[in-house]
Write a protein that binds this DNA or RNA. Sequence first.
DNA 1: CCTTCTTTGTCCTGTCAGTGGAGAAAGTTG
DNA 2: CAACTTTCTCCACTGACAGGACAAAGAAGG
Lengths: 396, 396
Amino acid sequence: MRRMTARPANAHQARLLKLLRDSGPNSRAQLGDQVDLSRSKLAVEVDRLLETGLVVADGLAASRGGRRSHNIRLAPGLRFLGIDIGATSVDVAVTNAELEILGHINQPMDVREGPVAVFEQVLSMAAKLRASGLAEGFDGAGIGVPGPVRFPEGVPVAPPIMPGWDGFPVREALSQELGCPVMVDNDVNLMAMGEQHAGVARSVGDFLFVKIGTGIGCGIVVGGEVHRGTTGSAGDIGHIQAVPDGRPCACGNRGCLEAHFSGAALARDALEAAQQGLSAELATRLETNGVLTAVDVAAAAAAGDATSLDLIREGGTRVGQVIAGLVSFFNPGLVLIGGGVIGLGHTLLAAIRTQVYRQSLPLATGNLPIVLGELGPTAGVIGAARLISDHLFSPA
Amino acid sequence: MRRMTARPANAHQARLLKLLRDSGPNSRAQLGDQVDLSRSKLAVEVDRLLETGLVVADGLAASRGGRRSHNIRLAPGLRFLGIDIGATSVDVAVTNAELEILGHINQPMDVREGPVAVFEQVLSMAAKLRASGLAEGFDGAGIGVPGPVRFPEGVPVAPPIMPGWDGFPVREALSQELGCPVMVDNDVNLMAMGEQHAGVARSVGDFLFVKIGTGIGCGIVVGGEVHRGTTGSAGDIGHIQAVPDGRPCACGNRGCLEAHFSGAALARDALEAAQQGLSAELATRLETNGVLTAVDVAAAAAAGDATSLDLIREGGTRVGQVIAGLVSFFNPGLVLIGGGVIGLGHTLLAAIRTQVYRQSLPLATGNLPIVLGELGPTAGVIGAARLISDHLFSPA
DNA sequence: CCTTCTTTGTCCTGTCAGTGGAGAAAGTTG
DNA sequence: CAACTTTCTCCACTGACAGGACAAAGAAGG
């Protein structure tokens, strides 16, 4: 099969493509209700899109009292690749043009092995997805990396946890290997975009997506657009000071949020608690597995372990303090919490909420939902697919 | 004189008006270089604007080697009113269409006296400006108030320091009194807009304007647009926690930034230091004036008083801590410091810079200027004039 | 003074985007 | 089978806009 070559010729076509992506197949009449174009103009643009093959008309919909309408939908053969590179694992997924996940692979990986090794693994995962018959090829790929990105060029800059990637031309290299257009962004930004596409955040113009995983980051959406900042490091809240003269952090400062609460910090706290005999529950888990992770703390907490619950509550309070400041500053309409530690569940969320509602101004929190992301571990790959589809569904 | 009745008929005309406002008189050719329109189309739109009277062609410019050009400029009779309502004083200024200040009055006032009393004062100040011959009438007015504003309606919401204003229809009432269009915004947002119009911030898409006066607030500009947040309270950073379990704040919490550093907090600290005999300099000033304000601390510091210098440095460090967090989060291209306490001068700025550069990530601070605003006390009124001109220079 | 060149502004025509109405196509309902 | 609905197509008219030709007005040089 030939891959997508055409791009929308104008803003109208771009608008139509995104509409079809976000709300599925539509009749011409339904499209007309949503785009503020005359029926005639709309028909012209739809016809042109049909000619390019970007959309197809397949079959007639059931009548609703009159002439039956044609189903206009995005080309069913379109395939996007969503790649989410974490600190310790990679996710690769294929989606169709509506960004529905057709196949998804997760593999452990160490980002510090550098771009060459990671790319090799990503490419083999992509090949596996293709071999499974889900895609005959890829029309575009989005990729998220755990660090700041110079967005227009698609190049990581000064990434703390993946030093070998600094300046590596991710976009260009991956595009060459895959033979399709590629867009690169920070992983947390992509998770925010994923939630924006499919989750609660759909109808909210300004929101924050706080990812708590190995580290902590934040995706910022302003007026429906991701805010990346002047150097691409916006949302890097892991090194905001949460505790004056607190714990030393890998960044060289003290008291950084990440040093006090994150997947890594929680594991360390749990280990300490187990070794000091503060928690029998954690101690037995340590003995069984040899190590302790956030998952163990979650399980122990679920089993009622007081120490684990305290650790989670304390961590949630720390994160809540920082989020409270951001809420006062940014006044979002929604705060989403995501990332690995959402396994800590309601205890964590309650601690965060309590702290934010207590510390921010009533006007900013009065009608502010603070909820868990809906997409869980797929937010990143969906966001990545959305990133590249936004790009390809814009005029060239 | 008849007041401005016409509005630009389309986006091109709006663009041209703003261009003429921001860069002064231009020939048709110069305009053509900046707007990406054909000469013919441009000529048509300019002619239409001339017909409406919004712009005039007065005189020929000196030749630059060929036919002399006509000077196209905004109607010289246009007058905007910029009103900046602070906690303890009002500024009212008249500007021409290029937002140059033609006249400026500052008077003490207590915002807590409520909108009716304040409006009376504002209207008499406006009348005085008109009587002085600077304006025969006003084509529009912008007004800034020290609290959150529901921007589309122009109504203050839940303003902490001006409770009597909650829900008062400022826009509508003032528009009726003045007989011209009015736009309302938070005062700090307007100061940011003022600096964006006339100062360093002109060329920067994303920046923060931190106002340190009686309280502390922050104007946020994203992609050239002011970010007001979901409920209009964005930038309210005075109540971000700066010191865990710190001083009690009027808002009911503890350790708020404002409680530890602001014009009010500084005055209180100075008083305490004088009474405890820590500073002879401050003590004599207290004896002379009966009270101590930030101005006294500035003067004492300038005279070398160690206690005052310490107070300023400590305050700057507090503010710097908070700004450091915001810089990590928002990754601006510029941070401006403004408001009353800029009289504290370089000592304050140095303390802020030190703290921000130490605490934020190098990528975010690497090329980040932190400087004083250029407009000083006129930033607010210029921003207010710009707000209404932005409104009037947009298609109706 | 005259020719040539440069800059500015005007006029005109061809093209294309887009609207809105008329009406054809294809149904449902009674 | 008539009346009504909904969907889609066709067509003519309008207005936006580009780009070229050209006029106006001055500078520079012989």
